Simulated assay, not measured.
Amino acid sequence: MKKQTNGPDHADCTAAPQLQRALRVLSGKWKGEILWQLVGGKRRFGELRRAIPDVTQHMLTTQLRDLENEGLVKRTVFPEVPPRVEYEMTPAARDLRPVFDELSRWANAHGRLEPASPVADDDADGRRAGSSDRPAR
Rank of each mutant, 00 (worst) to 15 (best):
M1I: 06
M1T: 09
K2Y: 04
K3F: 08
K3M: 05
K3W: 05
Q4G: 06
T5C: 08
T5N: 12
N6M: 09
N6E: 13
P8W: 04
D9P: 08
H10I: 09
C13F: 09
A15Y: 08
A22Q: 08
L23C: 14
V25Q: 10
G28P: 12
W30R: 03
K31F: 03
G32T: 03
E33C: 10
I34K: 02
L35R: 01
L38G: 00
L38W: 08
L38V: 03
V39C: 03
G40C: 03
R43I: 01
R43Y: 05
R44V: 04
R49P: 02
I52A: 01
P53V: 02
V55W: 00
V55E: 00
T56G: 11
M59K: 13
M59F: 05
T61K: 15
Q63F: 06
R65N: 12
R65P: 02
D66V: 12
D66N: 13
N69T: 04
N69K: 11
N69V: 02
E70G: 05
V73Y: 04
V73P: 01
T76V: 15
V77C: 12
V77R: 15
P79S: 12
P83I: 04
P83Q: 02
V85S: 07
Y87L: 09
Y87A: 06
E88V: 01
M89H: 02
M89V: 04
T90D: 00
T90W: 00
P91H: 05
A92C: 07
A92T: 11
A93T: 00
A93Y: 03
R94T: 10
D95L: 15
D95A: 15
D101Q: 14
W106F: 14
W106P: 00
A107P: 05
A109Q: 15
P115H: 07
P115T: 09
P115E: 09
P115W: 05
A116S: 10
D121M: 09
D121C: 11
D122H: 10
D123L: 12
A124Q: 13
G126A: 11
R127Q: 11
S131A: 05
D133L: 11
R134N: 04
P135L: 07
R137M: 01
